[in-house]
Amino acid sequence: MNKLWIGAITILMTLSGLSAAAQAEVLTIEGLAAANSPEFARIQSISIDRFGGRDGRALAFELEDRLSGITVFGRPYFNVIGGPSAVQSDATLSGNVTAGVEQYETTAKRRRCVERDDKDKCVTHKNMKVSCLTRTIDYRAQVRATRYSDGRSIYTESFPDQNEQTICFGDDEDFSSSESVLRSMIAGTASAISNDLAPREYREEIRILESRKGMTKTEGNFFKAAIKKTKSNAAEACRMWDEAAGNGQVHISLTFNRGLCAEQRGDLEGALDFYQEADRFSPGKLEVTESLRRVSDHRRALDEWELRQSGRD
């Protein structure tokens, strides 16, 4: 068998594997990811104070837009005060942004044309050292939140970033606009701060476990039939897995999938019990560990949401 055929077969096998992965059965899970900074569970209003540095004002504007746009369960999460106001906010955000641009000459290897034919078509290429210019943009934003009630700093974070681009003699490109690079860095900082201060609603497709190793033929066939049902009727698939468990079947795939079913219908306590049981079957299994973390995080987010709502009363 020649190398071309071997290569073709390898590509087909790879594509087949990717297709199988893409067609894996899933259950859709909706939830709430907790904010990275639990101190903000009781913060209802935020004022955007002074941000120093040449790009500080741009970050302040971006933060005002981002935080104003956060909604949870259809309700605005923060009352954002962007300028001077007679209303005292629960917390104040301030900070500083520094950015520096440096360019220096260097060399690098590039593939270049060294010979052309009479029609100006390149016939010989060669890797050779050429003169280049490297531009580095160093960025750092420092952000702090101060709580009004006690003057305590409840959030302090630094956001460093760097962009480096090298353009060589003969390259068919130019440096990206430094302004666009900085805008991207500022947007990334604002996004990270939003995730730190507020929870995030999510909708994810989580793969079920499909392994039937250790099941009897009858159990395996019934389990496989339930898997097929996930495409058209997830509730029926879940009912079938419950039926299998009710008939005394015990298996990590069955237990884990029942956990996904419980999580999908919002029964977080039930889901946690199933995932903990699955973890006893196979300690440290990635899918189980991730699900345990996801449910625990969802529960914490809901607890913080209830705490927040009690503060509105």
Rank of each mutant, 00 (worst) to 15 (best):
L4H: 13
A8E: 06
I11G: 06
L18N: 02
T28R: 05
L32W: 15
A33Q: 15
A34M: 10
A35V: 02
F40W: 01
I43L: 06
Q44D: 11
R50I: 11
R50W: 03
F51H: 03
F51N: 00
F51R: 11
G52H: 12
G56W: 01
G56R: 02
R57E: 13
E62L: 05
E64Q: 11
D65F: 14
D65N: 15
L67V: 07
S68H: 09
I70V: 13
V72D: 05
V72R: 01
V80C: 07
V80T: 06
I81T: 08
I81K: 01
I81E: 10
I81P: 11
G83S: 14
P84D: 07
P84S: 11
S89R: 10
D90F: 08
A91W: 00
N96G: 00
V97Q: 04
V97C: 04
G100H: 13
Y104F: 15
T107Q: 08
A108F: 03
R110H: 04
R110Y: 07
R116Q: 15
D118C: 02
K119L: 14
D120N: 14
C122I: 09
V123F: 05
M128W: 04
V130W: 12
C132F: 04
R135Q: 14
A141C: 13
R144I: 14
A145E: 12
S153K: 12
T156R: 12
D161Q: 15
I167P: 09
C168D: 05
F169S: 10
D174E: 08
F175D: 03
E179L: 08
E179Y: 06
V181H: 13
S184Q: 12
T189H: 06
P199W: 08
R200E: 13
E205I: 06
I206A: 00
S211D: 15
R212F: 08
K213R: 15
G214H: 02
K217V: 03
K217W: 03
K224M: 01
I227F: 10
N233V: 08
N233Q: 12
A235S: 15
M240G: 08
A244Y: 09
N247P: 09
Q249D: 03
H251F: 01
I252H: 08
E263A: 05
D267E: 04
E269A: 15
A271L: 04
Y275L: 08
A278V: 03
R280M: 03
P283S: 02
L286I: 02
L286C: 09
T289Q: 04
R294S: 14
R299I: 15
A301L: 12
S310C: 04
G311F: 03
